[in-house]
Each structure stands twice: as C-alpha cells, then as structure tokens.
Design a protein around this nucleic acid. Structure first.
Length: 998
RNA sequence: GCUCAGGUACGCAAACAGGUAAAGCGACUUGUUUUAGAAACAAGUGUUUGCGGGUUCGACUCCCGCUCUGAGUACCA
C-alpha cells in the first residue's frame, strides 16, 4: 500500500496536499487512488461523487419518500434506534442498522406497501451539558449544530427517510408531550387485582385514612402513584454532580467518564416499573424477538416466587397474644415493629433457619441492637456505608458481619435464632432481611462457617447426587438443590415441592406468612440533577406564610402542571459553569439557577416551587416511535386513528446495548398509555433485531519485555489493572505487529522471524484512544455511499460482530464498477450511453434462468435479512452477464431493480440510462417464475457406502427408479459393484444415489 | 462462577428440517491488454469444517464430553 502512495505522490499533476490531508495524516489509513477521478471527465466511468449528491437532491426535491397520507394495502413501519447526535458525527456502526432497515423499506415500497420510515434524534444528555459547562455554550446551540451534521451525513448515505417527520427529543413541541406522559404516570396507580393502570381518583381509600383527613388521603394516594418521590440511597457521582441509575454505574464508576460513585440519600422521583413486571415478562410471548433478547429481558426482570415470613422479635411474654392476634387477623400488609419480615424462595427450609441476617441499612438495626453490641454494630454499619459497590463485590467470597445481640423466634419451631447484620444481604431486594439456612444456601453456609453458627440439614438430597449424607449432617457441605424433608417435624418425608405448598398454607393460616413474588427489577430512578433534560411538570406547594416572610418551605403537597400549561420550558441560564448551592450548603440542581419567575409560579394565589430535577435521557426515547406517526399534532401526542393504522413497529433495528433498558422502559410506558386508553396496541415493537458491532480492522499484537526481547503471548498474563505481565511479574510492552510479519501456525499466529513467539490477533472495538475509528465521511468520499452501504451489508450476517476491512470496501466498489460497465459504454467519452452489448435481445434459456434464480434468491434473502448472501447472488449475476456478448434489456432492467434497495444511487442512474424517466423507488419488484429457475440437467453424485465414486447427469425431477437405473449403468459404479451384493439403496431425487454393498 | 453466542482456506464468509463442503469478496500465482503507476480482462492456487467420541447408508449440520474466543452478568435469599 505504501508503495502505491509514494508512487502517486511523485506525480506532478497530482494534488499532494489534498491527498495527504485526507489520507495519511488526518485519518491514519491509506487512501485508494481511484476516488480521485477528475470530475471534469463527464460520465463514462462510474463516479459516485457526481451521481450520489444528484440523486439525493432529486429525492429531496420530489419528496420521493414521503409517507402516504392513507395506508393502502399492507403497511410497513421500519424503525431505526435513533442516534444521540454526538459532536463526533456518525460512526460506521450507525449505517449498518440504518442500511438494513432502508433496504427493507425500499423493498417494501416496490412491493406496493405503504411505508413509514422515519429518523430523529435522542438529543438530551450529558455530553452536550459537559460541553456547555466547559465552554458556556447553551446546550441547545451545540445540539442543533450536531443534529445538522448528522442530518447531512445521513442524507449523504441515501437513506429513504421521510425527512418531513424528523423529530428531536429536545424539540419544545416534543418535550411538551414527554411531560404530558409523565403527568399520566403521575396520575396513575396500578390495580393488581385487575392488572391494569387506573386513574388515581379511582383508588379506593380505606375508611381510617379518609377519617384522618385530606392530608392523609393525599399521602395515601401519593404512595400508589406510578411516579412517586422517595428518599433514596442513590449513586451519587461528585464529579458529574448527578445521581446515576444502577445501570449507569459500572464497577463502582460512572459509565460516562469513569468517575467514582458514592452512595448518598437524596429525594428522588421514581417510576413504579415493578408494578408492570409481570406483564412486561408475560407479553414477551407475543413479540417476534430472538430468544436471546427475550431471555435477557426475563433475567433482568428476574421474577422469583416464594413466601414472606414474619419472625417475632417482641417481648417474650407477649408472644402468645401475638400469635393469637395473628391467627385471627391474618398476615398484615405492612409488618409491625414486633416482627422481622423476611422473603424466601425456600419456605420448606424454615426448620433449618439457624440465624437471620438483616442488611446494614435495614430500619430495625438501631432498634434491635443490644447495648453491648452497639459499638460493634455502629462500626460495621458505617464501614458498609462507606464501601462502594465495587468493594462489596470484591469481597464477595469473604463474608463479613456482626451480631446484633438480639434474637427472633422461628415461627415453625419456636426456637430462638440470633439476628446478624451483614452486607451480603441487600437492603433493596425482598424485605432487606433473610432467614439464613446454612445447610442449603451457599452464601449462608460460608457465613455460618466463618462465624461458627449452627448448621442444621433439613433437606436430604435425592439419589444420584454426589453429596455425602454424613458430611451434610456434620455441616461440612452445603446442598442447595431439592430433595426430601428431614429434621422438619411433621413435614418429614415431603418432597421440596409438596413441603413448599403445605408450609405456605400453614403459615397463611397462622397469619405469619404469605406467598410472595419478588423481582430483581427495581423501580426506575427517574430524576437527574442536570440541566439538559426535560423539566418535570411538577409543582411543590410552599408554606405561604413562610414564603411571604422570605423562607422556602415545602408543605409536601405536589401537583402536576395542567396539560394546558405544558410544555414547561427549560429556563434561560446565563452561566452554565456556575454551581448553585442550597442554604445548607447542600448541592442543588442547575435549574435552581433559574430566575424567580420561572422557579416560583403562582397559581390561584398559591405560590409553588418548580421541581428542579430533570428527566433522564431515557425519557425521550420511550415514546418517539409513536410521535413519528403523527409528528406535528399539537392537540394530542398521537392521533388514535393513526396509531391504530401504523402500530406496531414492524421492524426495529438497533444495537444490542439497548436490548434491556431502553426496550423495557419503552414497553413500560407503552403499557401505561395503553391502560389509560391512549393507545390501542399492547406492545410497541413486533420484530426486533440487534445488529452486531462493527469492530476495527484486525490487529496483531506482540509483547516485549524491558530489554526488547519478544515474549510469546501464551506466557503473558494480566495483572490486577489488566496490564500485561510476564511469568516473573514484570510489565511488558505492547507492540503492534505488521500483518506481513506474522504467519499462521496451527490455531494461532506466530512471528515469521521466530515461530516460537505467539502473537495475539484480534479485532478491537473502535475507539478514539485506539485510533481505529473509521469515519463514514471518508468512506463516502473515497468510495461512495453505495459502496459503504453495500460493504456494510456484505461484511457478514447483520446480527454478528464483524471486523472492518478496507480491502473489503474496495471489493464491493469493484463490484459496482463492474455493474456500471455491464450497462454503460465506458469507451464513449462524450456522453453517458448504453453499452453496445445491451439491447433488445431475446434472452437465451441460460440468461433467463440466471435472472430468475437471482430474483428468487435476492427476494428471499431480503425477507430473511440475509443481505450478505443477496449481494453475493448479484455478484454471481454480474459475473455471468459480463461474459455475455448480448445482454438483453429485459434482463438488465429487473437486475437494476434488484440492486436498487442496496445501492440506490447507481441503480437510479442506470434505470434512467435504460430509458425510464421516473424514479425506480416505486417500480414493481421483479417477479420470478419457479419453472424458469430450474436447470435443464443436473449432476448428482453416486455413492458406494457413503463415499462419492461417480457422478451422473440427469434431468431434474428424474424419478427414483430411473435414477437408480442410471446409476447402476454408470461404468465406474458397475465396476465397483461387480461381484458384490447390494444390501440397500438410498435414492434422494435431485440429490444423490447411494449403494450399500458388500 | 453463571448465562448466551460462536470456532469452516491466509482474512471475511456460504451451505445446516443430515444428502456433491467451501457460493461470493478480499489475499496469493500466472497470463493478456493497456500503462508513468494503477486499473481492466482471463486462467489458476488453497481445504476438508476447534478436539475426542456416538447415532446413521451418509454428519459442518443431530447427541455427549472437552477446549478456545467473544459478549453479558455478578452475593437477588
């Protein structure tokens, strides 16, 4: 490659500066010479730089891809996961999914379907705000600039979006409806008995609450809303000055920027997604997603069933009265002060519960701790609070804990069990307390071993398990599986399943337990202390007297902004770099910098303070697919009639990184809106496909020690910071090795100069720091948009991760060049003219067959989203017809149509050359005739004992007995079978003949 | 540790309700033509499907075990 470049650079008429600028310096990879066509040269050579912008302008001017007003016939809603418009512009990963949906959309239009294919931008979020803080530029300004750049790049790739429908989550008009949906969530409670979300006004209020007055009623209602506030222990990132969702914290550090995260209590808005957990899980059955993604979502929801059980911790002499009250009144909704409530999936092991553990953050910690344990507990709890999630994780195998000094009573046998505090119990799951059964739970087992607590086996393993019964009885091993009950009084002998059922019934009868369901899924922490997000449409009532006196104090009452007063715009901020501080030196969100007029609105004479948290970036992406259907409506968020017509999304393509959160959140909102009668579709995304990641070009990496000697990669390990070290523990240097200096040896690569040195070969994720990022702008400039589209589809299966290869791009460019020459007279320098070989010929039988085979294969492959094979079939077509002296126009035309969804610009250009004045965007998709795809003769193998010995030529569809006869007549076969007896003959028509002979 | 995906030529890949292994692209070799260089055109090279076993007339495809790679996840009681 370098030789070429130098050669080129020596040319006096070659623009060296341009070359250097685009190539080696700016982007760090070689540039292929053929993009430097002189554009003065009019037409004969394929020149995407001239063709592509021309057709893009044509489509734009003609509104070619405008969504039809009314659906006629079938509809297709093809949707891409809209991008965050970062300042870096489009990444080559974006066009992969976008090209796939574009092919499907274009193909559907040609099949007469009504197509909705929109694009928009998910434009709230941290980077714009970080940029604002750094440069004091309003985020809206930089965001709009970035969107403009994204639109330019997307148009440059020739996607058939209906640009009239472009939206951004930051549009004031869009924010209005995002806020409106929040008010719906705020106004909704989940009725578990009817399994639906209902207006808060329909929430039944218990009499004692009503009697306590309107204030109590309000609090009761607030407890049930899908959007509610809580004082939550949050992941606080001091550097980013915001709270992060659990999902945004990776290894105790912020996902964005990698800053340390600590835990801190703060008032937060939460969304009660857990109320919908069951429906989110069950309705997965109705959608057409891969099993992998469904499983991912199911695991994330993490439904488990078991029982809640109360352990008595009150005064010993009152236990009998407690028991009798419980057996009369039953299991209360909220546990009282006299019990510790636990959640367990194994109520059948209750007899083996030899101690209890509560989380360090559990509310009962202070209450139950005895005087002599106070100091130890205090120390432990403080240490646990200071520990990051990362630290807790690292110590996972080492169990820590402290005894509270208190005991509870085991409800099944009345035995006292000690109560411990340990951080292996999570405050946020179940009830934050567990009954510990060390004989049958690995974690409890480790803990009990560490602290010398009794281990009582109560489940005998079934036969066939390699658990030693003696060891189990001695408390030396732990068995977590199912089996038969022992040491469990009257329950002895029951199987785990029977026991679960019978004990649950007994606990319920005594009022000390209840069946319960739990989820790993937690409620969604929905507020951020940031500027660049949707403001909450929420007003906090102020104490009016104190406000008049200049003090700000909340009454606790909260109301939503009336729909007529939406949107709540973000206030103008003068200094984005300022850090607002509250009265007590507490950190305040940036919106507290707003002027008083914005901050303290007066409604009906009452002064409120606006909520100054903002929504997370997920909010806008939760419903954008609905707005695309009706983007300009200013009376509702979507016209129900249009929603009915277009929903659900028929094909949704995007990165696997959104397989869990975005999809779960969007489905949740969708279901709430459905329950409240605003939507008619139950699920938003019918078919979902995750594209694989595009990795950088394959790199070879070797290792050298400090003396510069090579170290084979099999002798390299990683230290704690994942830096490479050799066996002696010395740090090693990573050395990039040129592909020319390595060769394959067995399964791995070795240095050519020293075959004992193994070299790592791997394609890495594209990243700025690695310097292997490929910029789509450059590819379009060098090869054209059609080549980029075609290459990204040709690399391999859509869902698979694949490495980028510049040589591959030139391969598909070469294909398009061949397509061009197939139809264009490249000798004619004067004007664009048809190749002389193309004409009004009658196609030969072979030509017809190749055409129909190609139509068939390409059509099927598009339906299967198997674009790489579709392209391969078109390459075969071109290889065949390049050799044909006569290329019938009636064959060339359908081929151009087949190519058009993949490479629309060149196809439009050739379509026009073939004499059509209209765009081919709505030309009917070519049909094939099955009969014409059949070969006149086929060659089939003849096997003896499963080994191929000969081949015979027959007409397709030759019947079995005929085939057998022909095979037997074959000379070689006859020779081989001579003197042997045929035991069995297998004949598969059109496939093979196999003789089993002895 | 667990879950999932995957291992086919030098690289990317195709075929898999079991039936001619390598379609297609790149790489490589040779030739033709044109050439300042590239390009174009033509012909050709390569291996038996990660390893071991099983089922079968027949296994890349199904089953069992192992191994390697990648992704996700992490005490969820």
């Amino acid at each position: 490659m370098f030789a070429k470049i130098l050669h080129f650079a020596e040319q006096p008429d070659f623009d060296l500066l341009v070359f250097r600028g685009i190539g080696a310096r700016a982007f760090g990879f070689p540039v292929f010479p053929f993009f430097h066509y002189e554009s003065k040269q009019p037409v004969p050579r394929y020149n995407p730089q001239e063709i592509e912008p021309r057709w893009q302008k044509f489509w734009d001017d003609q509104h070619t891809f405008k969504t039809p007003e009314k659906i006629t016939g079938e509809k297709l809603y093809a949707l891409d996961m809209f991008p965050y418009p970062s300042g870096d512009g489009l990444h080559v990963g974006h066009p992969e999914g976008y090209t796939a949906t574009d092919i499907v959309a274009r193909h559907a239009r040609m099949n007469g379907k009504s197509v909705l294919h929109p694009m928009g931008f998910d434009a709230f979020g941290l980077p714009a705000e970080e940029y604002a803080i750094k440069t004091n530029t309003p985020p809206r300004v930089s965001t709009e600039k970035n969107i403009e750049n994204f639109v330019r790049q997307l148009k440059m790739l020739g996607f058939s979006y209906d640009w009239q429908r472009q939206i951004s989550t930051t549009d004031i008009d869009y924010v209005r409806w995002t806020q409106w949906i929040f008010t719906v969530l705020f106004d909704t409670w989940y009725d578990h008995s009817q399994k639906t979300g209902r207006p808060i006004s329909e929430l039944p209020i218990p009499d004692d609450v009503t009697a306590a007055g309107p204030e109590e009623v309000r609090k009761y209602q607030d407890d049930f809303r899908l959007a509610y506030q809580t004082e939550a222990l949050v992941n606080w990132c001091p550097k980013l000055r915001t709270v992060l969702a659990n999902e945004e914290v990776v290894d105790g550090k912020s996902e964005v920027g990698g800053h340390p995260v600590v835990r801190k209590p703060l008032r937060q808005w939460m969304l009660r997604i857990t109320a919908y957990a069951d429906r989110l899980e069950q309705d997965l059955a109705d959608v057409d997603w891969s099993d992998g993604i469904k499983k991912l979502q199911r695991d994330w929801i993490g439904r488990s069933t078991g029982a809640e059980v109360d352990f008595y911790i009150g005064a010993d002499d009152e236990i009998d009265s407690w028991k009798s009250i419980r057996s009369q009144k039953g299991f209360p909704r909220k546990p009282g002060d006299d019990v510790l409530r636990v959640y367990t999936t194994r109520p059948d092991t209750l007899f083996g519960a030899t101690y209890m553990v509560i989380a360090p953050e559990h509310a009962a910690v202070d209450k139950i701790t005895t005087a002599d344990q106070k100091d130890a507990v205090k120390t432990y709890v403080a240490a646990a609070a200071a520990k990051s999630d990362r630290d807790r994780q690292d110590d996972k195998t080492k169990k820590t804990g402290v005894f509270t000094g208190a005991y509870a009573t085991n409800p099944v046998n009345g035995k006292p069990v000690p109560i411990w505090i340990a951080d292996y119990v999570l405050a946020t799951y179940g009830t934050g307390a567990i009954m510990a059964v060390p004989a049958h739970d690995v974690r409890d087992f480790e803990f009990a071993k560490t602290f010398g607590i009794d281990i009582v086996p109560v489940v005998s393993p079934p036969e066939g398990t390699d658990i030693d019964m003696d060891q189990l009885a001695a408390g030396e091993v732990c068995f977590a599986g199912q089996g038969t009950a022992i040491n469990s009084g009257e329950y002895n002998g029951q199987s785990t399943a029977e026991f679960k059922a019978s004990i649950s019934a007994a606990l319920t009868k005594d009022g000390v337990g209840n069946e319960a369901v739990n989820y790993k899924l937690r409620d969604w922490l929905f507020s951020r202390q940031r500027f660049w997000g949707e403001p909450f449409p929420i007003l906090h009532e102020l104490d009016q007297k104190k406000y008049a006196a200049g003090e700000v104090e909340f009454t606790g009452a909260v109301r939503a902004v009336d729909a007529t007063n939406l949107p709540v715009n973000l206030p103008e901020i003068e200094d984005y770099t300022a850090k607002p501080d509250g009265d007590g030196g507490e950190y305040q969100p940036p919106l507290d910098l707003a002027d008083r007029e914005w901050l303290y609105p007066v409604i009906d004479g009452v002064t409120y303070k606006r909520e100054t948290n903002t929504m997370p970036q997920w909010a806008g992406s939760c419903w954008y697919y609905l707005r695309f259907i009706d983007p300009k409506n200013d009376s509702v968020f979507i016209d129900p009639e249009l929603e009915k017509q277009w929903m659900p999304v028929d094909l949704y393509i995007g990165g696997a990184e959104h397989a869990v959160l975005h999809l779960l959140y969007a489905r949740f909102w969708h279901k709430v809106l459905f329950d409240r009668g605003h939507l008619q579709s139950k699920e938003p995304f019918q078919k979902l496909v995750n594209q694989g990641m595009i990795l950088g070009d394959v790199e070879f990496t070797g290792y050298q020690d400090s003396s510069g000697a090579w170290v084979s990669s099999k002798d390299v390990t990683r230290d704690e910071e994942r830096k490479p070290i050799n066996k002696a523990g010395e740090a090693l240097n990573l050395i990039k090795v040129d592909a020319a200096d390595v060769e394959k040896s067995g399964e791995s690569f070795v240095l050519k100069s020293d075959a004992s040195i193994r070299i790592d070969s791997r394609a890495h994720k594209m990243s700025k720091s690695r310097g292997n990022v490929v910029n789509p702008d450059v590819i379009v400039k060098d090869f054209g948009a059609d080549s980029l589209r075609l290459y990204e589809m040709f690399m391999g299966p859509l869902e698979q991760a694949k490495p980028w290869s510049m040589k591959g791009v030139s391969g598909v460019k070469n294909f398009l060049d061949r397509v061009w020459r197939l139809l264009v007279d490249d000798q004619n320098e004067e004007a664009l003219a048809l190749n002389a070989a193309v004409g009004d010929f009658e196609p030969t039988e072979d030509q017809t067959r190749v055409l129909h085979q190609t139509i068939k294969a390409v059509s099927k492959d598009i339906e299967k989203l198997s674009f790489n094979t579709a392209i391969a079939r078109m390459m075969e077509f071109v290889n065949f017809f390049t050799k044909q002296k006569q290329r019938p126009q009636s064959v060339m035309e359908p081929f151009v149509l087949l190519l058009s969804p993949f490479a629309p610009h060149i196809a439009e250009e050739l379509w026009r050359l073939l004499g059509h004045q209209e765009s081919l965007a709505y030309a009917p998709w070519p049909r094939f005739d099955e009969a014409l795809t059949v070969e006149s003769t086929i060659e089939i193998p003849v096997q003896v004992l499963g080994k191929i010995k000969s081949r015979i030529n027959v007409a397709p569809g030759t019947p079995k007995d005929e085939l057998e006869k022909l095979a037997l007549e074959d000379e070689k076969i006859a020779e081989l079978l001579a003197g042997k007896t045929i035991v069995k003959t297998i004949v598969v028509p059109d496939r093979l003949v196999n003789f089993v002979a002895k």
